[in-house]
Design a protein around this nucleic acid. Structure first.
Lengths: 125, 125
DNA sequence: TTACCTGCAAAGTCTTTGCACTCTT
DNA sequence: AAGAGTGCAAAGACTTTGCAGGTAA
């Protein structure tokens, strides 16, 4: 991976870190746009993907909504409001052994898991 | 819910049952189109949503891909190939107690969970 | 008759990508 | 220089929706 240091890339990484966990690409874009109006959505997407590939941030593909990006923190799960789409962290131990509990992998090479709780948030209830 | 029996609705339900688990809306549409070319995508989507709301089928929102629809079978988890997007069932016991293992619901009313394993399928490996 | 349903096409959401230009290295 | 990166806009994947006509009950 032959990467260069660009202002835009730094801004994207900075925004993800600043927004803490589970920011959407759109939130990252708007956070950057507040101070640097020249950065395009395409560049934000490209850098979010690149940064997640090299492991600088983590990409979370959410069921029923836009992808989320986390700064590097401990593994944890999320909950998504079925009405408004709001995402929060869930306070529950991470199941590191989950892949071992699959009885038949059907030839798949397991690389991880995505667990998202569904619910109704306080504001929508 | 004041529902009517329409040919299209029956075809959608039939297609989901016939395709067994985790069919996409597109697969359902094409299955129907083979015999009944008049049915529109919009109608397929509308009926898939309606049928899942009344509980006749189950909607699975997949991280990083199109929604899937299951005929009513036992609860089970899925695995999605990170390269080709193929989805398979996972042979693992369903965790009915998972919602109880959340220490702090943050005011959310928990209604379920979605667990999707990530991996590389035999064909892509 | 009523109002639910449909086909069609447009639009909406989220993301990727082709192109020509601009930078980092 | 070379080629990675950028802005822009178009397009792509998936889904919803407004509208006017159709049809179950």
């Amino acid at each position: 991976m032959n990467m260069r240091n660009t202002v835009q890339r730094a801004l994207v990484l900075e925004a993800v870190n600043e927004l803490r966990c589970h920011a959407t690409a759109d939130e990252v874009y708007h956070m950057i746009a507040q101070k640097h109006s020249g950065v395009s959505r395409g560049t934000v997407y490209r850098n979010l993907n690149l940064l997640s590939v090299i492991g600088a941030i983590r990409k979370l593909e959410m069921p029923g909504g836009a992808d989320r990006y986390d700064h590097l923190c401990h593994n944890h799960y999320h909950i998504r409001c079925e009405k408004c789409g709001r995402v929060s962290d869930v306070n529950m131990e991470f199941m590191t052994d989950l892949e071992n509990r699959v009885h038949d992998t059907l030839g798949f090479l397991l690389t991880g898991h995505e667990l998202v709780f569904k619910g109704i948030c306080p504001d929508c209830n």
